[in-house]
Nucleic acid binder design. Structure first.
Length: 547
DNA sequence: GTAGGGTTAG
């Protein structure tokens, strides 16, 4: 198939009968490129691309469009772009294909950039309605409400607002940008409401914690003939589960069964997710067992949701069991599962298991790298953590984010690498445009503080553009106590107390600081305050006496 | 081209 002579084929194009054959051949290739794109089979796709050039089949515009999609799908954006620019007549279809693929594969910024270029070419017309949902999806993911609203304006101008796909995408965009009222307005304005748009608006409410409103909406729509499907019920379960409203979760399970719809693996995974996010690990594990009892097979999503519930030494046994389970059901190689496993082993103190798994991974993302770097840094292997950070940067395949720098700065401060830490703090802002967050400032205070450079540490606090929190002042206090700076210790402890006035722990800390400085009068004063606080607390419970 | 569950955080 790949050995056809190009001259022969070019000749065929001029012949009517053969041209038809040639076209069907092209369609078969177009389908094959689609399969390679779906599977991310870059190598095979490239070979096919070469073949298409030599045979001349490349001249079919839809083949070229599919190749662009293929490269974008495989993450080769610049390659996709080169092809796009090479083709002399850029048409609407090709723009739609490129934008759609970028949006589908997670290259949201790129999708938006290409769309604005498309707008500049005046190529937007009544056919370009198909591009609107993709662009709105990109806006939803990056939280770009301003562009989303502009597109809404365009939708109204072009009378695209009758289209169900467009409306659903608008609802999602407003929901993700936390404008649930706007989302509802779009839904209310729809002449004919479909289930997808209902689910979109229900999801918008549920994700913002308005689960009861979401349920009422479903109920009211039922009266208008829109019957909820399993997606609707799962959205509601997810909303109530995140709030750990177990009564409502079980109510929805009953309603589903009444409706003749059986809860599926997504329903159960949502419940597990709710427990894990609320640190109710035991209940998460029990729910998992219950799910297995219903003969439902977990997916990679279920496993990666559950694994963080085992990320403490006490639950290591469960973690290993789930790891074994993931192997049996064939999801252990999933990048989310692997990253969660790396993190779990590292947190449980089994750093060598974490490392073995990490190096076995053919593809690693930001979370994978961050997990292993944190793992090393938190277990005192700071040099290894810094080494891995460098490796991540050199390899350049995963994007460094604010957590990568938190992990690296933690390693620097534990290892006493002041200069490197300072350099990374600058690199983070200048090269990666990541604004320092509180945790980064806490790391910097810790970095100087541990090395006894208390004045530098305090200088960071005084000049930082955001309000320091408990961890920042806590780092300064620890440094002051370790290096005997009673004066600044008092300042730090006072701030801690101001941030958490109810905490008797902070009061005790302050009294220790005074004791260190020999200010015994002040120590007594604090002790009295603590006693008074206790007294007040018991007074608040005086109704006990009346029982 | 639109709707449901996923991994890292001092």
């Amino acid at each position: 198939m790949h050995t056809k002579n190009s001259t022969c084929i070019k000749n065929l194009v001029t012949n009517g009968t053969s041209y038809r054959w040639f076209r069907s051949e092209a369609s078969a290739y177009a389908e094959l490129i689609g399969i390679y794109a779906r599977d991310g089979a870059l190598h095979q796709g490239k070979k096919l691309h070469a073949h298409l050039i030599t045979t001349g089949l490349y001249r079919f515009t839809h083949i070229a469009t599919n190749l662009i999609t293929f490269y974008a799908c495989c993450g080769q954006l610049s390659h996709a772009r080169k092809l796009f620019d090479k083709i002399p007549q850029t048409n609407v279809h090709r723009y739609i294909a490129l934008i759609g693929t970028c949006a589908r594969c997670g290259f949201y910024d790129h999708a938006l950039a290409v769309f604005s270029e498309m707008q500049a070419t005046q190529m937007l017309n009544t056919h370009s309605i198909f591009v609107i949902p993709s662009v709105l999806k990109a806006c939803s993911h990056v939280g770009d409400r301003v562009t989303g609203e502009k597109i809404h304006g365009l939708v109204l101008k072009c009378s695209f607002d009758v289209d169900a796909f467009v409306n659903s995408a608008l609802i999602v965009m407003y929901s993700k940008c936390e404008r649930v009222e706007e989302a509802c307005k779009v839904f209310d304005g729809m002449p004919v409401k479909d289930l997808v748009s209902l689910n979109a608006v229900v999801s918008g409410c549920a994700q913002l914690g308005l689960s009861n409103e979401a349920l009422s909406l479903v109920r009211s729509m039922e009266l208008h003939g829109l019957k909820p499907n399993i997606v609707t019920w799962n959205i509601l379960i997810s909303g109530f589960a995140q709030k750990c409203d177990l009564a409502m979760v079980s109510e929805i399970f009953s309603l589903m069964v009444e409706d003749g719809i059986e809860p599926d693996v997504v329903s159960w995974t949502s419940v597990i997710s709710g427990f894990v996010h609320n640190f109710r690990n035991e209940e998460a594990l029990n729910t998992f067992k219950q799910m297995l009892g219903h003969m439902l097979c977990p997916t990679s999503n279920t496993i990666s949701t559950l694994l963080p519930a085992c990320a403490t030494a006490a639950r290591m046994r469960h973690g290993k069991e789930i790891h074994g389970y993931a192997l049996v059901i064939g999801v252990e190689e999933d990048i989310y599962v692997r990253s969660a496993l790396v993190d779990m082993y590292a947190k449980c103190g089994f750093i060598s298991e974490a490392r073995t798994l990490f190096y076995k991974m053919p593809e690693k993302n930001t979370v994978t790298w961050n997990s292993i770097i944190f793992g090393y840094a938190n277990h005192g292997y700071c040099e290894e953590a810094i080494e891995l950070f460098n490796q991540m940067e050199v390899e350049g395949r995963a994007k460094l984010d604010h957590l990568t720098f938190t992990a690296a700065l933690t390693a620097c401060s534990h290892a006493g690498e002041i200069e490197l830490g300072q350099r990374l703090f600058e690199v983070m802002q200048e090269k990666y445009s990541i604004e320092p967050r509180l945790e980064h400032y806490a790391c910097m205070v810790d970095l100087f503080g541990r090395a006894g450079k208390i004045d530098e540490a305090y200088c960071i606090i005084k000049t930082m553009p955001i309000e320091p929190d408990l961890f920042v002042w806590g780092a300064l206090l620890a440094a002051c106590r370790n290096h005997g700076n009673a004066e600044l210790a008092e300042v730090a402890a006072q701030h801690l107390l101001k941030l958490e006035p109810e905490s008797s722990g902070n009061r005790l800390l302050l009294s220790s600081v005074y004791a260190d400085a020999g200010k015994w009068g002040k120590v007594e004063g604090i002790k009295k305050t603590i006693k008074k606080g206790r007294h007040r607390k018991f007074q608040g419970l005086s109704w006990i006496d009346n029982i």
